[in-house]
């Protein structure tokens, strides 16, 4: 068995192309839609925030005061503070497109961006597990 074959370049190109196509399809389907952020503590929906450009504020869930989320003036939301060891949630950065999510797994805080009017039948439909609060 070889380390690398020429056909691998084709395989890699196909995977990258598939990734680009999926991203294009996805971002076309969701961009420009008004969105809200659903905040979960483990599997329970504990809060919903409309994401509209304007005021800047910070929020946190009562169960985990050390995890702080910030809504920026451009209507995006991100984790800005957490006492977890790896800070993956903070590195995830800003969320503003429906379907994106960020999670602080050690603290069980999850943020999901969903369309303000909910998902529709015509949307690309791959959600693994339950759709939570819907």
């Amino acid at each position: 068995m070889k380390l690398f074959k020429k056909t691998d370049i084709l395989i890699i190109a196909l995977i990258i192309a598939a990734a680009a196509a999926i991203w294009y399809y996805y971002s076309n389907a969701v961009s420009g839609r008004p969105v809200k952020a659903e905040i979960y503590y483990y599997s329970d929906l504990v809060g919903t925030v409309e994401l509209v450009p304007g005021t800047e504020r910070t929020i946190s869930v009562p169960q985990e005061e050390d995890v702080v989320l910030k809504i920026d003036t451009d209507g995006s939301i991100r984790f800005i503070q957490s006492d977890c060891p790896d800070k993956i949630c903070i590195r995830t950065g800003r969320l503003r497109l429906a379907g994106q999510s960020a999670a602080c797994l050690p603290n069980g805080v999850i943020v999901k961006i969903v369309p303000a009017d909910g998902w529709k039948e015509s949307d690309p439909d791959i959600v693994i597990g339950s759709r939570g609060g819907q």
Partner: peptide
């Protein structure tokens, strides 16, 4: 484990 996530994204 948590709640459904949107795979397309």
């Amino acid at each position: 484990i948590y709640t459904g996530m949107y795979l397309w994204a």
